[in-house]
Design a protein around this nucleic acid. Structure first.
Lengths: 134, 134
DNA sequence: CCGTATCCTCCCGGATACTG
DNA sequence: CAGTATCCGGGAGGATACGG
């Protein structure tokens, strides 16, 4: 932690930053994948489980509950035997699609550049390490 | 993990989802706060440390390195004694501002609704727990 | 089919102390 | 001032088994 003298308090925090509010909603890697699975319409629980690579039942349920709690996703239970459960975006969830799409587009358009930057950075870092071990 | 029969492989994964690429860049809570601190221009290391509530030197450095590695932030060292280091967004970093603004705006406009949804959800969940303990 | 409960491991990130 | 090095505790999340 940094020391902060009185009269010069921190003004950037999770509580006031809009980006942080956003992250609070799409915090985990599973959240975005579930959101992605629902952006074109409703889907069943098991169906999503099979489509999303590497997700466990525990995390699928937990992620869906969290999105449901935030009012972005709704759950529809058909009480047959065995039961059938469909999930879909709420209007609030759908209102997130447009801004999310903008950012997704940025990522798709620029991720190659980011990866090139990473390679350059790792190269020069390695070269630097080599130099100081001589 | 879900079982996936052959011929029905998962098609949603971190590797192909644009949202995941996005999250890979702004993964942590500190990333967005640092980005937020730089969106209006360059800033010094210690200055950011004092402005961002609760961040440690370790995490500030680590977050800046990661953003630098991804090519979103650049580091400018003035080799005086004591040294002075300024950080700022690169053109690539600035190109992220517009889509990020869209999402920030959504969060600011809708976070109250999300919090109301949370309250409702927690209320009904509590009521349900109460009912089944009778 | 759609979950919960339990255990257990791994790694993120905080605290603290030291350096150029 | 601007970092690194080291230690360590807590929580996220995977594996597994069970329940309605």
């Amino acid at each position: 932690m940094f020391l902060t003298d009185k009269g010069n308090q921190p003004d950037i925090s999770i509580k006031v930053c809009g980006y942080s509010k956003m992250l609070e909603i799409i915090s985990s890697k599973w959240t975005v994948l579930v959101f992605y699975a629902l952006e074109n319409g409703s889907a069943r629980y098991g169906e999503m489980g099979r489509r999303i690579e590497g997700i466990s039942k525990k995390m699928l349920t937990q992620t869906l509950r969290q999105l449901e709690r935030d009012g972005l996703v709704m759950r529809h239970l058909t009480p047959t035997i065995p039961p059938r459960v469909d999930y879909s975006l709420t209007p609030l969830g759908e209102s997130m699609l447009k801004p999310m799409f903008e950012l997704k587009k940025w990522a798709i358009d620029n991720f190659a550049i980011v990866e090139q930057a990473r390679d350059r950075f790792d190269q020069t870092a390695a070269a630097h390490d080599f130099a100081e071990n001589e």
